Simulated scan of single mutants.
Amino acid sequence: MQLTPLIAVHMTAALAAVAIGPIALWARRGHASRQPHSQRPRLHRAAGYAWVTLMLITALSAIFIRDFNLPNIAGYTPIHLLVPIVLVSLFLAFWQLFRGNVSGHRKTMVTLYVGACLVAGAFTLLPARFLGQLVWGQWLGLI
């Protein structure tokens, strides 16, 4: 697999989402009972919308990336199961917010960040994957 423009867009959006996610989670809107200085609603909203946009770019671009070297169905590998999971989770998170379920929104977003960014990100570093070959092979010379 080569670094095509599509893979570059996908990888850039995913790496940016990994970086911006903690900012959105840290600057969460909080509750009225908390001290005012612990809330950063503008930062939370800006980082949150940026993160959601990056996750949409990552998920939608993944639809067009296929890998026939790993176990697959028509080029879609098991990691592609994250595409519908991300899309449904984002919808669910905003639906919960719309319904006033801030706790459910928070849990969904934290779970999505950990699962789609951290866990899936770790799997992309496996030696058989493109990014794994790039990091462990070309950059670090370990494989």
Rank of each mutant, 00 (worst) to 15 (best):
L112H: 06
L140T: 01
F98K: 14
A8K: 12
Y49Q: 02
G132V: 01
I7V: 14
A59S: 12
A120C: 06
T58S: 08
F130E: 14
W26G: 00
I57N: 03
L60D: 07
M109C: 05
A59V: 04
L140I: 01
V102R: 07
R42Q: 13
V52L: 12
P78C: 03
G21S: 14
L3Y: 12
N72R: 13
V119C: 12
T4I: 04
A17C: 08
T53H: 02
F130S: 10
W26C: 00
A24I: 07
L92G: 06
I143A: 12
F98H: 12
V86G: 08
H31T: 15
R66V: 09
V114C: 05
I79G: 13
W139I: 12
I65K: 10
A128P: 00
Q35G: 05
V110W: 10
T4N: 05
M55D: 09
S38Q: 15
W95T: 06
G100A: 01
V114W: 05
V114Q: 04
T53Y: 04
R66D: 02
A62H: 05
Y113I: 03
I63K: 10
R106W: 07
F64T: 05
I63G: 14
I7S: 08
Y113K: 01
S33P: 09
L15S: 11
W139V: 13
A27P: 00
A27T: 03
L131A: 14
L56P: 04
L126C: 00
Y113L: 05
V9E: 03
F64V: 04
